[in-house]
């Protein structure tokens, strides 16, 4: 039990919350960076290696394309079907192998990214499938390479959907990052458990919840705004 009437209580709380918030933001940012890059790549591969996709037969081998697509589908499904808390625990040896420890602010990024990548990859896949085939065809008729079709047509045309998907993923990662607090992953979740739960301090719980709500709200607002601009709802981008 902490003494909430102690004059040092509130200054300590703000200092703790500030530090934990920075830890959470760091965790979420690095996780999202990895997720955006790898998830996008996996999502693109899921689409282009599918039957009728532009890479259904990489290196001239249809079997390779099929196999690659199948493996990616299985990995993505697996990653998405395992509950995060179990995934996090199961990954402890792997995390330790990569980071050196399984329990630190940085170490927590490993399970977070491994949970978020399949989640985002699936969203990318769905967003890319919405791009009309006619646009790809127009690109081909111009003589675009496969890489140009992906980088200049497929991804930009799915832009708003990708940004909204990334936003949804980021909100989930904020949630998950609170869970990693359970195994000493630092951040706001850690703080809520150590002070709010183990020492029964209601102010800590309330402040942590408020900060999390603010973070999630800001992420969502930024995502919506960006997607809206890309859709042309805002002023046209000047080049």
């Amino acid at each position: 039990m902490i003494d909430e009437t102690d004059p040092e209580f509130w200054p300590t709380l703000w200092a703790n919350v500030g530090e934990a918030t920075l830890e959470t933001l760091y965790q979420v940012s690095v996780t999202m960076l990895l997720t955006a890059l790898i998830g996008l790549a996996v999502g693109v591969l899921l689409v282009v290696t599918d039957r009728g996709g532009m890479l259904e037969a990489p290196f001239g081998s249809r079997a390779f394309g099929r196999g690659l697509n199948w493996v990616l589908q299985v990995v993505v499904n697996l990653g998405r079907s395992i509950p995060f808390i179990i995934l996090m625990i199961a990954l402890i040896p792997f995390t330790r192998w990569i980071v050196g420890t399984a329990f630190s602010v940085t170490a927590a990024i490993v399970p977070l990214a491994i949970a978020a990548i399949p989640f985002f990859a699936r969203i990318v896949e769905i967003a890319l499938r919405e791009v009309p085939a006619g646009l790809m065809e127009a690109g081909s008729s111009i003589g675009a390479t496969k890489w140009q079709l992906v980088s200049k047509v497929l991804i930009p045309e799915a832009g708003p959907a990708l940004v909204l998907g990334l936003t949804t993923t980021a909100v989930s990662v904020v949630n998950f990052s609170a869970i990693v607090g359970v195994i000493g992953g630092g951040g706001l979740g850690d703080l809520a458990i150590r002070y709010g739960h183990q020492r029964y301090s209601t102010p800590y719980i309330i402040v942590v919840v408020v900060v999390l709500v603010v973070i999630v709200t800001l992420i969502q607002a930024a995502g919506n705004r960006m997607a809206m601009r890309m859709r042309g709802g805002g002023p046209a981008r000047t080049r």
Binding site: P132, G134, L135, E137, A138, S140, S141, I142, G143, A144, T145, K152, V153, P156, E157, G159, M230, G232, A236, R239
Partner: peptide
């Protein structure tokens, strides 16, 4: 790809990139 550059094509549903001006 090179040959296609000399053959322009227009489509019924335009097939333009909405992400660009």
């Amino acid at each position: 790809r090179v040959a296609r550059q000399r053959i322009g094509m227009v489509f019924q549903h335009f097939n333009l990139l909405n992400s660009r001006t």
